[in-house]
Simulated scan of single mutants.
Amino acid sequence: MSSDLGPVVQRALLSGELTRLRREVGRTQDDVAKALDWSVSKVIRIEGGTVGTSTTDLQALLRLYEVSDDGKVEQLTRLAKGTRERGWWASYPIEDQQFRTYLGYEAGASCIRMFHPSLVPGLLQTMDYARVVLRQFVRGANDERIEVLAGLRVERQDKLAERDPVPHRHFILDEAVVRRHVGALTKNGRGIMPAQLRHMVEVVRDGHVTIQIIPFSKGAHFGMKGPFTLLEFDADLGEVLYLEGARGGDLILTGREEQIINYRANFEELEEWTLSQEESSELMLRIADEMGAA
């Protein structure tokens, strides 16, 4: 399993496999704790994926579960080593723990589906656009902190673009997102929002990004409920749902499958309401020209 998945996804894969192996041999978490002279809380943390797993602990578990296949042991050992890596985002001052965990899953996703009703998503933002919205969201932050947080958004984009294979990103945006005139002029006299719109049109040309707009004429739709993101993985891991709110994010893992299925179905329904990719790009360019001429 490639470490390109990142420590959070590898931790989730390992914890899921260790839970499956324990159940296969008919042991409870209490049984494992007693057999290895561990606390039950340690077993819970390992199976919950909240901590990395040392190779020593992994070997003890595999002996207990009677796993002797060399290929399986090697695969799980690579995962265990990957769980203890440091994610690239660890150096950033991220206060929202749910968002920090989300970044770990995003880093290993093979497909990202995202809807936003009012804002250009961070994975599409230019530095200038990011600076403007961050000043509204992070009140009292000095210029240095704003630069760091804006840099995080751009690095997220760069890290995904560097992956092999590059994950597909599909964004559905309400027309309000592209109509709202965010920011004024930059130091070189360019309009922030026209440049942002043109950047989005350029991004889709690499073939790994889709951006589609739901026009105002479609009326009310599910997306008005709020922004959400769905992550899929090539690895043996279910989907992840991330809901954004004013007070922080809410990360929903595969244990709440019904809710994830509901959001996936609604994303597909929203897609039916959108302009095509070509029509969406034409709309963004037209709005950029109108804003630039204002």
Rank of each mutant, 00 (worst) to 15 (best):
I146A: 01
A220V: 10
S281H: 07
D37C: 10
E232Y: 05
S217R: 15
M200E: 13
V203D: 07
I94L: 12
L36S: 09
S118G: 12
L5H: 10
L152V: 08
I211P: 14
L124T: 08
G140A: 05
G108S: 12
V120K: 03
Q59C: 05
E147N: 06
S91G: 12
L103T: 04
G140F: 09
L231E: 07
Y129F: 11
G52K: 04
G71E: 12
T126N: 12
T28P: 04
R256I: 06
S41K: 13
V178M: 08
D250I: 12
A246G: 02
A60N: 09
R78Y: 10
G255T: 07
H208M: 09
C111S: 11
Y92N: 07
D164V: 15
Q29A: 03
E244G: 14
F216I: 01
T55W: 03
W89C: 10
Q277Y: 00
M291I: 05
P227W: 03
I260H: 10
S3I: 14
Q212K: 15
G245R: 04
L123F: 02
H181E: 13
G104A: 03
S217V: 06
Q29N: 01
E271S: 08
S15L: 01
R131A: 07
S41H: 08
T254L: 10
F99N: 06
T19P: 00
E239C: 07
L149G: 01
F233P: 06
V40D: 03
A246S: 05
T28D: 03
I261Y: 00
D164S: 09
L185A: 06
T126W: 14
Y65V: 06
Y65R: 13
R256D: 11
V240P: 04
Q10R: 15
L251V: 01
I287C: 05
L160D: 10
H116G: 06
G238I: 11
V182R: 05
S91P: 00
E239F: 00
G140E: 03
T254Y: 04
T254Q: 12
T126D: 13
R131Q: 14
E232S: 13
V138R: 13
S91W: 10
L283H: 08
S41N: 14
Y65Q: 12
A12E: 11
L21I: 00
V204F: 11
W38L: 03
